[in-house]
Design a protein around this nucleic acid. Structure first.
Length: 228
DNA sequence: GCCCAGGGGGCTC
DNA sequence: GAGCCCCATGGG
């Protein structure tokens, strides 16, 4: 691995513009894991509502999530959308954490990265992005979290293929960014900030992106897009 | 009315 | 493995 200058320039530009994002929102590893599941395919503000609802209903421990009925749990997390599926995902994951580790997160995150990642991926409802979010943000493992923004942004910058796989995109980042959990943490959060505000799916242009270096490159991509 | 949110499961071929 | 559909709702 050697650090790629361009990737770090992008990181520095984003950090300078947006500032540290303070991720992951959440006061505990338990709360980070809950948030990682609830945020699937939705924005964070809806997750906040659902987490507040869980706290208000006094259903915010591993045991209590496993005790309430799936229907009741789904009703509580309704603001997070896909609530029936996500209720099941929360219970599946909490059951795993309780039965395997007795809710001991120090024990859980003392597992080796490949072992814990495989275990998480075997759970119903935990895919690669959610597993890696848990590993990085709750477990401090040096894994780069890839999401739709990551692929879209680097595709529009002309640096990766449009349909690059999750693993390929992750390897791309991990081969170019030093394996520092603080940087991986911040980089992903910054890409989400850029993507959500200036890199919409339906808009191949830059949406007045504040960063000149992005703006110019995205305009080039826009020209190519129109030319197709 | 249409698009889209910090994905993932399940099915088909 | 790629390409679909489903889950589900509110805000811009």
């Amino acid at each position: 691995m050697r650090t790629d200058k361009k990737l770090m320039e992008i990181y520095d530009s984003l950090l300078g513009y947006f500032g540290p994002r303070g991720w992951w929102p959440g006061d505990s590893r338990f709360e980070i894991i809950i948030g990682a599941i609830l945020t699937q395919a939705i924005s964070w503000k809806n997750v906040e509502k659902a987490i507040l609802a869980l706290k208000a209903a006094d259903v915010f421990t591993e045991d209590k999530i496993l005790t309430v009925s799936p229907e009741k749990l789904a009703d509580i997390i309704r603001p997070a959308l896909y609530f029936r599926q996500k209720a099941r995902k929360l219970q599946v994951t909490m059951d795993y954490i309780r039965s395997r580790y007795d809710c001991d997160y120090d024990l859980m995150f003392s597992e080796t990265l490949p072992v814990l990642r495989n275990d998480l991926l075997s759970l119903w409802g935990i895919g690669e992005e959610t597993a890696d979010s848990i590993l990085l943000y709750a477990g401090n493992y040096p894994v780069f979290v890839v999401d739709s923004y990551t692929r879209r942004i680097f595709y529009r910058l002309g640096m990766v293929d449009e349909n690059i796989s999750y693993r390929q995109m992750q390897q791309f980042m991990q081969n170019k960014v030093p394996p520092d959990t603080a940087i991986y943490n911040e980089y992903h959060a910054l890409l989400v900030a850029l993507g959500a505000n200036y890199c919409k799916k339906s808009r191949p242009d830059c949406l007045n992106c504040p960063l000149d270096q992005f703006c110019n490159k995205l305009k080039i991509m826009q020209e190519n897009y129109r030319g197709e």
